[in-house]
Amino acid sequence: MSDFLGYLLTGLGIGAGFALVGSGLVAIYRVTGVVNFAQGAFAVLAAMLTSTLLTAGLPHVLSELAAVAVAAVVGVLVGIVAIGKPGTDPGTSLIITLGLGVFAYAVEIVLWGDQPRSFPGLPGVATVGGARIQAHYLLILGVTVPVFLALAAFFSRTDLGKALSACASNRYAARVVGIDVRRMGLLAFALGGALGGLAGVLTTPVQQVTFDSDVTLIVNGFAAAVLGGLTRPGVALVGGLLLGVAQTLIAGYGWGAYQLEVALLLMLTVMIVQAARSGPVREAAR
C-alpha cells in the first residue's frame, strides 16, 4: 500500500510537469490556433539555464525565476517568428515552431553540450502515510497547484485574461471591439514560455534533462492537452497528472521501458475517439 502511495505522489509530481507543458500548449493554441511544437524546448532551456545560474552562485528561487522569465521572453520571440507576419496560417506557424524546436537543439548543444544536466532541488525525504518520497515531489505539487489556480483566476477575473479568451472564442469579433489579436497571441506565447519553463525548472531535480528531453515533455504535454481538445487548461492539468501517475505505476511495477508508449497510446485513443465523435463537421463549423 505504501508502495502505491509513493508511486502515486511521485506520479503526481511528474505529471505536474506534463500538465504545465500541456497548459502552455493550450494557452497558445486557444488564442492563436497554433500547436506550438517548440513548447518542450522552453522547459529544456529554462532547466539548462537554471543549472548554469546555480553553478555561477546565484541562489535557488532567484535562479529558477530568472530562467522562467527568460523562457517567457523566448516564448515571445518564438511567437514573433511564428505568427508575427499578418495572415500567417496556423498550419504554417506550426511548421515554423517545429523548425524552431530543432533549432533550439543546436543552440542548447552549443551552449550546454550534449550531456545530461541536473541540479539539486528541495533536499530530503518526506514520509506521507508511510510512503517515503523525495521531498522535491511535494514542492512540485506545491507550486503547480497554486499556479493553475492563479491561471484560472487570471482568465476568469481580469480583463486581460478575458480578452485572451475572447480571441480564443471569436477572433473576428475581438478585432471588431478593438482587441489587438496579434499582441494577444504574443502574450499567449509568453505565457506558454513561462509555463514550459516552469515545468523544466521544477522537474529537472528529479529527472535529468538533456537537449532532447523536450520530446518526452511535448509528447506527454500534448497528450494531456489533447484530452481537453487543446482548449481546456483544467482538463490538461487532470490529464497531465493522470499520465504522470499511470507512467509511474507502470514503471514502479516493472515495465519502465514502456512509459512513453502509455502517453502515445492515450493520445492516439483520445484523438481517434474525438475524431469519430465530432468529425470534420465540427472543424468546418469553426
Binding site: D159, S165, A168, S169, N170, A173, V176
Partner: peptide
Amino acid sequence: QVPEGREVFADLSVDDNLRLGGWRNGR
C-alpha cells in the same frame, strides 16, 4: 460595429461580452 451574424463571444458571459466592448476605453 454590430457585425453581421452578431459574432458574440460565445463562451464568455453576457457581462464579459459587454465589458470587452469597452476594451478601447481602458479599465
